[in-house]
Structure formats: structure tokens, C-alpha cells
Design a protein around this nucleic acid. Structure first.
Lengths: 338, 338
DNA sequence: GTCTGTCAAGGAAGCGCTTGCACAGACTTC
DNA sequence: GAAGTCTGTGCAAGCGCTTCCTTGACAGAC
């Protein structure tokens, strides 16, 4: 592997000149710059990242912390982050918890402390106080996507407002008895959305002067199967007679659509269903949803962090709200008495 | 941030002794080792990874190359790799193509050359010759999961055999006219499975003396929506009258199940459907499938690579076959004439 | 009582880069 | 024409580790 010394020799300049030429410093004559670039090219030279890091303290590397990779939302945010980061020549180090407490602990006690990353993006994680302290001690830019991290910049949708909007949509269609498929305790541990969205639903109901029954809440685990099971209960108990369901995620909403069909009910004639997320599959299932765009949010998050790292942006902990959009499809319709 | 010098000072030893103590070298008295460990602990010392790398040439970092993160199979393999890697104290650098040719190119012309990773795991990518050459020149252990990379070790299922097994399952149930929902040209570009699985289907049919019609092949893009569209065509053309469908992935098979239902057909009474993968959702949809376990494969892949890196395993390019399992659920049944 | 071998610990080089400082020469400016 | 300002380049220190080589202390062998 070629070292910078080889490049310098071949271009007939000193090592320092070679370094400056390759890094695009001013005060290098165009002619020299060209010779160095050509020498590097012909030798296939690529700077060793560890030497670069040791000398500069910069890593060209951003860490991403998230609870699961294999779920649609997280994977999609990650894809967005990665594409923007790579375009800027930045590496991405992945730290996911994989649902394991010890893996999670090791991220904070070991990995993050290795000075391997210049900045951190967290995706919808709900941090414990001592984890937060680790983050602050790192003294590196931190950006939280999809859920606030105290003291850090944030990029998120208004989850509360999104849930309220979805619920108000149902209410505006004349629905009065609206069930909620929300998060169970396990999912609340891992990320923040469940309870915030629950709150939006409650406020929409309250503001519209509608009563809410505890029996209209059906906890689930944010998966299709979970939403299916919850909806089956919700729709087959004759005492409840909800005419619409709001699911706190599209995946659960899709499960609800499938459950309704399996119960011989027609969507939306017999039951209206609305979700949140704008999941890839929501269009396929004709689901009315409040869409966010995780991929674009990820890309934007990377952009914000890159801005801070390049010094263009101040590192102030700003709270950026990502726009949401109500997409009405064929899973919701006007209420009519059975 | 504490440096090793601080640790040494605090423990009252030289830097070199501190280093050896922290790395568990022999020839350090137990007493000294303890003092150094305690000093490190109390200072919250973590070795700088770039200094470590520069001095040793080792990175404690494995790169993972894959075409998409947000698809179930890839995300799940990735989760498996990550969990095993973290357990060994290894970082993971993510390089995905994101469906972008230039992003893909930059992985090979830039990122991989930075000496940032000790080894590479590729997931189901179909490498171009010049990409392969880059890999070989890196002179680092490479492991290919889910699809061979010439000259590298491989961990994969027998895709050909899996497809054959799925098809033979249908044949053994008396089906004769079996449609194939396989890969379209776009998906064949990105990864290898489509055409291999196609081959397995053809061989099963041929060995059983069954004719195959070109009109029984329905290309799709390996998604639920794609499988749905393909199955709708397959099942609604009266000239075809296929009694069973083999889909080259569970996601397409799920789409097929939904299409059948929407056409008013009963699964499996009116049409049997089988997939490949053992997708998280396959159980939910009662899908008969040939299951692999991407998560376990990922973990195993990481383990194999770690073995090579630690010197326990030779770096010989072995081809490891991961077992597959036919899981019969409620989407397939014995053929009976309409 | 000297010699050799073993063990624990330290000195210092070196990994491959960046960058502050020094310096030589060319170009202004009065 | 001397003093001062730019420009372009080189020297060498230093980033924080690991590890080869050496040293010193001590025990057992002769």
C-alpha cells in the first residue's frame, strides 16, 4: 500500500507539500497540486484513516444508535442517513441494541468512548439518564431523530400532532366511538412514539367533546401481527362497537385491516382504519395514514450533523419539526349507523 | 480524556507496562496488573482506537457491504452480524448501495481502501469483476453471505435446492400446473438469488416429468406489492389455470396470498402457494415456506470472520451451507380438480 | 563468591499522517 | 534601492498507542 511518502517522492516534493496538495490547501501552486494529484492517482494512494484521525482528531465517521435495524422505520431512516453520509465521504458506524440490554450497555460503556466517531445520530431511542450523561461527556454533536434527547438537537415529526390529526380525521367523518391500537409496555421501553401518539389521540377526543373509554385501548407491539390481534379483539367484542380504529403505526393499522377482512367486515364500510407513518406498504393496502418520510428525515439528519461538523452550522440544540401529511386513501369513510 | 500516560502515572508504572497490563500480556506481575486496571477504571480510560490501529495495523472493525438495508432479509442478516460483532468488541462499518450506482462505486474506489476495516462481509451482492479485483487487492478476509463471491469464503443456503424443494412439495401434493413468481431483471442486477431459485424450480419440474410453460413465469421485484400484481395476473388468466404458485421469496408469496383472496379464491383450496425465506410475517399469513434464518446466518458469518481474524481459523475460502427447512402451514394442500 | 537464567519493568522507536513555524525567493511600495 | 509583503515549500514535532530491545534484580548453580 502506497504511503504519502511515496506520493511525495514520485511528485518530487516534500511530504508536507504532498499532504497539503491532497487536502486542497491554499498556498499550493496549481502546477504542484496537479503533479501530486497525478502521483497519488497512479499509485492508487488513499490516506490511512487511522493516521489521519490520530493527527487531526477528526474521524470522518458518524455513529448511529438505534434499537432495531430490521424494522421498517429504523432501516429506512438508516438508509437515508447512510446515503447522505457517504456522499460527503463519511463512514457510518452502526450501534444497535438488538433488543439486548447488555449490548445496549456496551455501546455506552465501551464503543462510544473509543473516539471512533465525530458525531452521533440517535434514532427514536429513549435514553436513560446515565446514558445521557455519557453522551454529554463525549462532547460531540448529537442529533436525535424521531424523539427528543435532552440537550441535543432534534429532528422529528410532531408525533402528538400526527396522532391528533389522524384522530380528528376520523372524527370529522362523523365517527364517535374510536378505538386506539397503541403501544404496549415493552415497546414503550424502547422508543418514545407510543405514549406521545396516545396523547394526541386523547386530546383530539377531548377537544371534540367525545368520551373515551379505557376499553377502547388495545395495546400491541407495533407489528402487523400485533395490530391484527389487537384489532380482532377490538372488532369482535359486541359491547364495544367502535366504528373506527386509529393505530399508532401503519404496520399495526395494516394488521387491523387484515383482521377486519378476516372477520368478514368491509373496510371502510364497516370500520374505518387510519395509521401513522407512510409505510411502504400503506399504499398497497389502501391505508389512510399520516405520512412522514423516514428516508428523507435520515438524509436531512445526516445533513444537519455534517453542517455542524464542518463548522457551517452552530451546534445549538435546535428542535426541527419535519412536516407531516394526511394521505386519505380507501380505508376511511364517513360514519353511517350499522 | 485520559491518555495511557495518565493511567501509567496514576499506577506508578511506565507507559509500556501500562499498555501491557491493559492488553493482558504475560510477564506482568499480578499486582501491577491490578493497579493499572484500577487506575484505568478510575480515570474512565478507553484506548483511542486510531492510535491503536496506527500502532498495530488492526482496526477491530468489520465492514458490511449490502445492496439495501431497509429490506427484511438484509436488515435481519445485518442485525445478526452486528450482535455477534459487538459481543467481540468489534465495530461495524456499513456500506450499502442504496440502489445508487455512484454510491456503489464510491464504496470500492474510496471507502474500502481507507484501511478502516479488518475484514469484509458481503450480503447477497453480485460483484462486478473490477469490484472483485478491488476486494482481492485489499488482501483482507472476505466472507460472502447468501451468494458466492469467487475466491472468498461463503456462507449460504442452497438456493437452488430450496427452490427445488418448494416446487417438489407442490408436486408431491399432486399439482401439475405450477406457476413461478420470480425475479425481474432489475432485481437480478442487485443480487443473486432470483435466477438460482428459478433454476431449482425448473429442475424440479423437469425431474418430475412435468412440462413448463413460459406463460407460467411471472416476474416481480421481490416485494409484497410486486408479488400481488404478478399473482393477480397469474390467477385471473383463464387460459393458464395454474393450481399452485411458487414464489421465489416469502414477500412475493404473501402478495400472492393477498391477491388470491382479493380475487375471491380460497388459499389453499383454490390455489396452493409456497415461498422461500421464513420471513417474520410468513407465520402470520400461514404461509408454507422453505425457511432459512437470516439472523442466525448473520451471527454465524460474523463468527467465522472473527475466527479468521483471531488466527484460530485458516482463511481458506470454504463454502459453508446453511440448513434449510420446509415449514408446511396452511397455504398449501393436495391438488383437487376444480 | 561469581556466573547464568528468569522475570518484571522501562526506554524509545515507529505506525502514517497533519500542521505550526521557518525560510527563500519574487513581487510590491515608497 | 531598501524594506516589507506575499507565495510556495520544507523541516520537524506530535497525535496516542504498541512492542522490540535493554536493563536491573534476584534466585539457583557451580
Amino acid at each position: 500500500m502506497a504511503r504519502i511518502e511515496d506520493v511525495a517522492k514520485r511528485a518530487g516534493v516534500s511530504i508536507s507539500t504532498a499532504s497539503r496538495a491532497l487536502n486542497g490547501h491554499p498556498r499550493i501552486s496549481p502546477n504542484t497540486a496537479r503533479r501530486v494529484t497525478e502521483a497519488a492517482q497512479s499509485l492508487g494512494y488513499v490516506a490511512s484513516s487511522s493516521a489521519y484521525t490520530l493527527a487531526t482528531g477528526r474521524n470522518r465517521n458518524v455513529g448511529v444508535v438505534l434499537p432495531y435495524i430490521e424494522r421498517w422505520y429504523f432501516g429506512t431512516v438508516l438508509a437515508g442517513i447512510e446515503s447522505r453520509l457517504m456522499r460527503a465521504g463519511y463512514d457510518l458506524s452502526l450501534y444497535d441494541f438488538n433488543g439486548s440490554a447488555e449490548q445496549r450497555a456496551s455501546v455506552f460503556t465501551d464503543f462510544l468512548l473509543r473516539k471512533h466517531v465525530d458525531a452521533l445520530i440517535t434514532v427514536a431511542v429513549r435514553l436513560e439518564p446515565h446514558e445521557l450523561e455519557v453522551l454529554h461527556r463525549l462532547d460531540k454533536p448529537v442529533l436525535a431523530v424521531g424523539g427528543p434527547v435532552p440537550g441535543a438537537a432534534t429532528l422529528r415529526i410532531d408525533d402528538f400532532g400526527a396522532a391528533k390529526l389522524a384522530t380528528l380525521h376520523l372524527i370529522s367523518l362523523g365517527h364517535r366511538r374510536i378505538g386506539l391500537i397503541g403501544g404496549d409496555t415493552a415497546s414503550e421501553m424502547d422508543f418514545r412514539q407510543p405514549e406521545t401518539r396516545h396523547g394526541g389521540y386523547l386530546e383530539a377526543m377531548a377537544e371534540s367533546g367525545l368520551p373515551v373509554s379505557d376499553t377502547w385501548f388495545f395495546p400491541a407491539d407495533f407489528t402487523i401481527a400485533g395490530g391484527y390481534a389487537a384489532a380482532k379483539t377490538a372488532l369482535s367484542d359486541p359491547r364495544l362497537s367502535v366504528s373506527a380504529l386509529f393505530a399508532a403505526s401503519d404496520e399495526m393499522a395494516i394488521g387491523a385491516v387484515l383482521a377486519a377482512k378476516d372477520l368478514g367486515m368491509k373496510v371502510p364500510e364497516d370500520v374505518s382504519i387510519v395509521g401513522i407513518d407512510g409505510h411502504d406498504l400503506s399504499e398497497f393496502f389502501g391505508l389512510t395514514t399520516v405520512a412522514q418520510s423516514p428516508r428523507d428525515q435520515g438524509a436531512r439528519a445526516a445533513e444537519l450533523i455534517l453542517g455542524v461538523l464542518s463548522g457551517d452550522q452552530p451546534a445549538s440544540p435546535t428542535d426541527t419539526l419535519w412536516p407531516i401529511e394526511l394521505i386519505v386513501r380507501s380505508s376511511t369513510t364517513r360514519y353511517h349507523a350499522p
